[in-house]
Design a protein around this nucleic acid. Sequence first.
DNA 1: CGGCTTATTGACAGGAGTCAACGCTGGTGG
DNA 2: CCACCAGCGTTGACTCCTGTCAATAAGCCG
Lengths: 241, 241
Amino acid sequence: MKETSSAVSCGNCSVRRLCLPMGLSDEDIARLEQVTRKKKIIKAGETLFRAGDPFTNLYAIRSGSFKSAVIGAGGDVQVTHFALPGELLGLDAYSGSIHPGYAEALEESSVCVLPFTQLEGLAQQVPALQKQIYSIFSEELKQENEALLLLGKRSAESRLAALLINISSRYSRRGYSASEFVLSMSRMDIANYLGLTAETVSRLISRFQKQQLIRVQGRSVSISDLIALSEIAGTHCSYEG
Amino acid sequence: MKETSSAVSCGNCSVRRLCLPMGLSDEDIARLEQVTRKKKIIKAGETLFRAGDPFTNLYAIRSGSFKSAVIGAGGDVQVTHFALPGELLGLDAYSGSIHPGYAEALEESSVCVLPFTQLEGLAQQVPALQKQIYSIFSEELKQENEALLLLGKRSAESRLAALLINISSRYSRRGYSASEFVLSMSRMDIANYLGLTAETVSRLISRFQKQQLIRVQGRSVSISDLIALSEIAGTHCSYEG
DNA sequence: CGGCTTATTGACAGGAGTCAACGCTGGTGG
DNA sequence: CCACCAGCGTTGACTCCTGTCAATAAGCCG
């Protein structure tokens, strides 16, 4: 709450290079800050929005992490995304103006609240921002396509390896260690995201550990053999690649 | 080829209600037509674009159908989408300005070629078009999330039922029969899309037929019991929904 | 410490993949 | 016109990966 009116702005935000301001001039960033004033702190387990909530804001993650998920007709849940700082949440709600899924904080997190109508209006005036919004939409689509590839074609082993590498690379891109990090989500969340069960995930983690690929202590992970892990993640198919 | 310069325009296009013009004024449609003049005919098996091609255009399907697919590091292919008339192809290429996957015609098809920079420029001037573009992006994201749900959580049976219903409803929305239609894609494409094998798909089709849910003759399908099929598609989970 | 959720490990079963043979269909060329 | 071929589709037998069920262990917070 105290941060609601803090001095933090896009210009000096630690994730500005990964977020909306990317590629914008200082002048444009100044204008962008008019719509990014509002911050919000979310505690672990709390939701940013729920399925069915009206769509009014996008949320840019400043710190922490989230899972987003959709809920099927039968009530079954699919985790669709683990979101890290610099990423935007809520894009899939624009059409229909209702959030089709929910976003839940995996740890204490801080977000920028972006009233979409304001952002939209600004983008109309600032072509570079417009492009950046398209780019984020498009990037999201590309990522989901890759997730589809993962779920559709790969073995359980390959999926987990791919997730570890994906998270590793995303942390490293933010300036953190690529080899040591904390998985803020539960085994069940990981399993759900990968289309597996918690037991399978647990067994795979144990196996990777026995194979000296990783070292795990609860939720903290240290990658020992990134190359081998990449190979497992990449190609483990029956036909030659 | 003759259609390239035909009189067909957005204003009288048979799929206008599903395409970009939806919700635009006549005046705005007239402006949009300045960037939708070019049409293209694609024969079955030919590609609209390939993975790695530079991104210059979006394509709006006027008739026919396409599959779009991404190619993994190991060379494995995942069909991500079956596209029908009124739908847009190529959105995931904006960021990176390169097509991450390819789009292949499943039958002789006709598309509008939309040079994206022109479309972008026009959208900057026509807010309603801007909104429509956001909406399409967002809708696409929502659909991909549902696809993730399908691949991650559902049984083979449930997946195939869901695909049949999905295609049925999309055809019916376009004014065709909801119960009788032709699957323009091969069993292998279906299997790939659903994260299954061709054999499993074939077996399931046979089973559905024995259960009197559908009648199949080659690629033409007739749905006999939509209710039962929906139930299979919806909830077939172990825990109560 | 005690009660809770989360994680690990094991035994077992079943669904979907794999391999393989065969039938069907549509196109091509003699 | 028909024979041939190649690719697609169907069916069967068998295997194995992953889910299910269950018991135990390890964290976590009051």
